Computed example of a mutant assay.
Amino acid sequence: MLDHALIASLRPDLLRFAQLQLRDAALAEDAVQDALTAAITSDHQFAGRSAVKTWVFGILRNKIVDLIRQDSRSTNLSALIDAEGEALDEAYDALFKANAHWHPATRPSVWRDPEDSLQDQQFWTVFEVCLNHLPENTARVFMMREFLEFETSEVCQELSLTTSNCHVILHRARNGLRRCLENGWFAPGERPC
């Protein structure tokens, strides 16, 4: 039997994630409440193959996917992205030379062994901070694709995006996360063996 207080303590993290994905505070609250209830009433099904937090987030993930797929309403992110897109395009263009290669000063650094980082809980704390610093719509597209594991076509359909616009948003999200992680997690100039 799992510690119900531990499960309940996950609520703030679950709620932040649900609000980012659902963009509706009441719907997010309902999804989190359903996920917590399911976790507490089904705690006998927890096999211990993952952390409790991972298991509960998996339950929430499934609830969110179901809600998104059921919801016929969609947000047209294209208009929102276009408003900020022009300035971002200029910023991204500045990262590259005319031949589409990185400028030496903006080239991504080589990181230490990713397996070590994935095992480190502090890494995930920094990752969450970095994710929260992305523009809300960019983070939402990234999380739908990478965490909720929607196909790109599903993300595009749900958010009324073109495939190319979705790929641009994902590129920007990955670049933003990379830069944030380089500044907040990986030491400057750190090179693995």
Rank of each mutant, 00 (worst) to 15 (best):
I7G: 05
P12E: 01
L15G: 01
F17W: 09
L20T: 11
Q21P: 08
L22W: 10
E29S: 11
D34R: 12
A38D: 13
A39E: 06
I40V: 15
I40S: 15
I40M: 15
I40R: 09
T41E: 15
G48M: 03
G48I: 04
S50C: 13
T54A: 14
W55M: 07
N62G: 13
I64D: 02
D71Y: 04
R73A: 15
S74H: 11
S74C: 14
S74Q: 13
S78D: 15
A79M: 10
A83F: 09
E84Q: 07
L88H: 07
L88W: 08
D89C: 04
Y92F: 15
A94Y: 08
F96N: 01
N99W: 05
N99C: 08
P104F: 02
S109G: 12
D113G: 00
S117G: 04
F123D: 01
W124C: 01
E128T: 12
L131M: 10
L131N: 07
N132K: 06
N137G: 12
R140C: 11
V141R: 02
T152G: 11
S153Y: 09
L159W: 03
C166D: 06
C166E: 11
A173F: 08
L177H: 05
R178L: 01
R179G: 04
L181G: 00
L181V: 01
W185Q: 00
F186Q: 04
